[in-house]
Design a protein around this nucleic acid. Structure first.
Length: 617
RNA sequence: GCCGGUGUAGCUCAGGGGUUAGAGCAACUGUUUUGUAAACAGUGGGUCGCGGGUUCGAAUCCCAUCACCGGCUCCA
């Protein structure tokens, strides 16, 4: 089936949902009901009806009734004035607002709404006519397209209900958004629901608990993760990896404090923009100090400590910086969104001519890192060119020429590298546009994982200048970038990406040695010896000496997702050979080779240091 | 912050205005000394998120609050 046919089915399902809800609760007012990935939603002001999950069965039943009636979707048009009258008469105040906007200002003022929802005859119509669809008694403002009749909408399920502000603005009333999924056949629907169940098993919050990676404590506070030994081990490996990689690429790694005087943020200009998402000031000796929400100003202070020559540029100041942001309570989510996190941050201070090359270099580093994790552009992540909104001075620094210049620079870098990307309005930082690496989590939800940002504001604010080859002073530009993003967030992605089965270099326990017997002294001693030898090679080796069956101990090791499990019994003690059991995802050959202890340990150590994703045994 | 939902043992979950709140796994103890995904038996473990109210009686009903989940808003 073609995409546009599926789209028409889902769009029609949204209308069936609205029609069903209107039959059940005639007094409700409708917002909009667009198609989304795998389904649709409809925003409804249910007034007294207070729709909740308990009503889903009732709604689905009514929708099925409408589908069985096989009502045709009939297209017709009205003049804009007739449409306004219709909205008034039927009490559809939200539709009325849209129509009034259309009538007054044309299409631009309603650009926050999907054009399909507006019933505009065409993109540049004179607005004399507005399109409608009728489906039985139910009439809705809509440009279509729809399927021929309600019998042709395919298989669906109502999934959830949530609040959503009218037209996405916090000051507007909140409507109830009813989400559904829709597919051509019941089998596809079933498959989709099963996929969601599978995805839940990889959820980083579930695996984090199962594998003792991290925890939260109500007493410590919301959004403040506590890293347990296993999780801390993984994160330490990640941090070593990224710091070493950056230093090799000419970054200057520094360490600066987690607090700073409030005057630093007043100087940077961050304070008015971000004070709502900063922790409240700490009063010390009459001065106010802030927990830092970003690293930029600290790094700029380092740059400006003395005059700089063009010979020193680009200066790539980098840090694993612990940051604190007072995110709204409802925005917190596992490790994806926390209030205390560590950003692999850097501020590249360079000449305007060097900026494009530095952006390209940062992207190259990002690509390299993604490659080490086995992440693919297209499947796992994509590039987003995030642009500013020139009309919104409260969120974006006013300097149209600088915005134009910066945006075209970033666009050029992406084009020259041949990278696919998409553009998004009003997603920039207040100081300039950025290239965001948008990573998909296990349920397909996207978050920014890494970012490269062009900054034309801070250099002025902080006086980031350099002496050029003609002995003249010039203003530098800044590229903010994060190579691996926030460690917490990238951990969340990696836990889900690997489904908890970390490659050898990251695995908290790389080898588990278990004994056949718990009493045989020689056997126990041999197992301990293997562990010590492994540790000398920098390996993380666990021991299971419990008085349990071999089968049970193997099972425990498999469930703990340990890459290599070796059994030690009389045979091994006598022969000096091991037959390591390789975790299923790592094994290339499917065989279980027999190796000398030292050879086995050395191979695993080599795998760890080369950060490979597969076993070489 | 807003809308909707959830909160019972370390974990997964059952129960539910009326004696002492259950199961499996985990933990612990004992027996077994085990050869590649679960030996057997027993023991301990819960202020039913926290606080208040209604009631003869609350884990169960009501209110408030905290945390988490799904969205919205936000995301330097």
């Amino acid at each position: 089936m073609k995409d546009n046919e599926i789209h028409a089915m889902r769009h029609s399902l949204a209308h069936v949902l609205a029609a069903a809800a209107t039959r059940l609760w005639p007094e409700i007012k409708l917002g909009i009901g667009p198609v989304i990935e795998n389904g649709f939603y409809y925003d409804i002001d249910s007034g007294e009806a207070h729709i909740s999950e308990d009503h889903f069965k009732k709604i689905e039943k009514e929708m099925r009734k409408i589908i069985n009636e096989d009502l045709p979707f009939e297209h017709f048009t009205m003049t804009i004035d007739e449409a306004v009258k219709w909205a008034k008469d039927s009490g559809q105040t939200y539709k009325l607002e849209l129509l009034n906007d259309l009538k007054r200002d044309g299409t631009t003022s309603v650009s926050d709404i999907d054009p399909e929802q507006l019933g505009i005859a065409s993109e540049d119509a004179a607005l004399s006519e507005v399109e409608f669809y009728r489906c039985g008694d139910f009439v809705d403002l809509c440009r279509g397209p729809h399927v021929a009749s309600t019998g042709k909408v395919g298989a669906f399920k109502i999934m959830r209900i949530a609040g959503a502000y009218w037209r996405g603005k916090e000051d507007n009333p909140q409507l109830q958004r009813i989400y559904g999924v829709g597919f051509e056949t019941k089998d596809e629907l079933k498959e989709h629901l099963e996929m969601l169940e599978e995805a839940k098993k990889r959820d980083h919050r579930k695996l984090g608990k199962e594998q003792d990676l991290f925890m939260f404590s109500e007493t410590v506070g919301s959004g403040l993760p506590l890293w347990l030994e296993a999780g801390a081990t993984i994160r330490r490996e990640l941090e070593r990896f990224i710091v070493d990689e950056e230093i090799a690429r000419g970054y200057t790694h520094v360490i600066t404090p987690d607090v700073a005087s409030i005057s630093l943020y007043e100087k940077s200009g961050h304070y008015p923009y971000y004070k709502d998402s900063m922790y409240a000031p700490i009063d010390i000796d009459g001065d106010q100090y802030m927990l830092r929400p970003m690293t930029c100003p600290h790094h700029f202070e380092i740059y400006t400590q003395k005059p700089r020559s063009y010979r020193e540029l680009p200066m790539r100041i980098a840090e694993l910086a612990k940051l604190y942001r007072y995110e709204q309570s409802g925005e917190l989510s596992g490790l994806m969104r926390v209030r205390s996190f560590t950003l692999a941050d850097s501020h590249i201070i360079c000449t305007p001519d060097q900026a494009a090359g530095e952006v390209a270099g940062a992207l190259e580093l990002i690509e390299h890192i993604a490659g080490v994790f086995g992440l693919n552009r297209g499947d796992d992540y994509r590039y987003r060119l995030s642009l500013g909104d020139r009309s919104d001075d409260s969120k974006y620094f006013k300097d149209d020429a600088a915005w134009n210049d910066a945006e075209s620079k970033l666009r050029t870098v992406l084009s020259e590298r041949g990278d696919d990307f998409f553009e998004a309005e009003a997603e920039a930082a207040f100081y300039g546009p950025k290239i965001d690496v948008q990573m998909k989590n296990v349920l397909g939800k996207e978050e920014t994982a890494f970012t490269v940002q062009y900054d034309f504001v801070m250099p002025k604010r902080f006086g980031l200048r350099y002496i050029d080859e003609h002995n003249e002073e010039n203003e530098a530009v800044v590229v903010h970038r994060s190579s691996i993003g926030a460690i917490e967030r990238v951990m969340a992605f990696l836990i889900e990406h690997f489904a908890g089965k970390f490659p050898v270099w990251l695995a908290p326990e790389q080898i588990r040695v278990l004994t056949v017997s718990a009493d045989d002294k020689q056997m126990l001693e041999y197992a301990r010896e293997i562990k010590e030898k492994g540790q000398k090679l920098g390996l993380r080796v666990g021991l299971d000496l419990e008085a349990e069956s071999v089968g049970k101990k193997i099972r425990a090791s498999v469930l703990d997702k340990v890459p290599y499990t070796v059994v030690v019994g009389e045979q091994e003690v006598d022969s000096g050979l091991l037959k390591p059991r390789i975790r299923d995802d790592l094994s290339v050959s499917g065989r279980e080779p027999e190796l000398k202890v030292d050879n086995f340990l050395q191979s695993v150590a080599n795998e760890a240091s080369s950060r490979t994703l597969r076993s070489s045994l």
